[in-house]
């Protein structure tokens, strides 16, 4: 069971982001959806979709396909009984501090 998924989705302008997120939030097991715009073209747009809840990937994929969207990449996934957020590794922390200098 998935707890959190971050997806890169290509979708037509219609349904718009409001309608798209509302319809997606009605998918089975979904507790919340965030859709933010990445790139916009004449008839299609790239959006970052963050979904939280207790859901199956197949159902999310089906819902997105039904809305005319297509998943380009899966950028982040959390699964299991508890939601686990991404943690920084020592390498990443040191890398950042190096940047700060």
């Amino acid at each position: 069971m998935l707890r959190k998924v971050v997806l890169d989705v290509l979708k037509p302008h219609d349904p718009n982001m409001v309608e798209f997120s509302e319809k997606l939030s009605k998918a089975k097991g979904v507790e919340g959806v965030n859709v933010s715009l990445y790139e916009i073209d004449r008839e299609v747009e790239n959006v970052k979709v963050t979904i939280r809840g207790k859901m199956k990937f197949k159902e999310l994929e089906e819902k997105i396909n039904e809305l005319g969207g297509s998943i380009h990449s899966i950028d982040e996934v959390s699964a299991g009984k508890k939601l686990v957020e991404e943690e920084e590794t020592t390498y990443e922390r040191e890398g950042k501090s190096e940047w700060a200098k």
Binding site: P12, D41, E43, V44, G68, S70
Partner: peptide, 8 residues
């Protein structure tokens, strides 16, 4: 036309 843009 939309299928061409969406590649599906």
């Amino acid at each position: 036309d939309l299928e061409k843009k969406m590649l599906k």
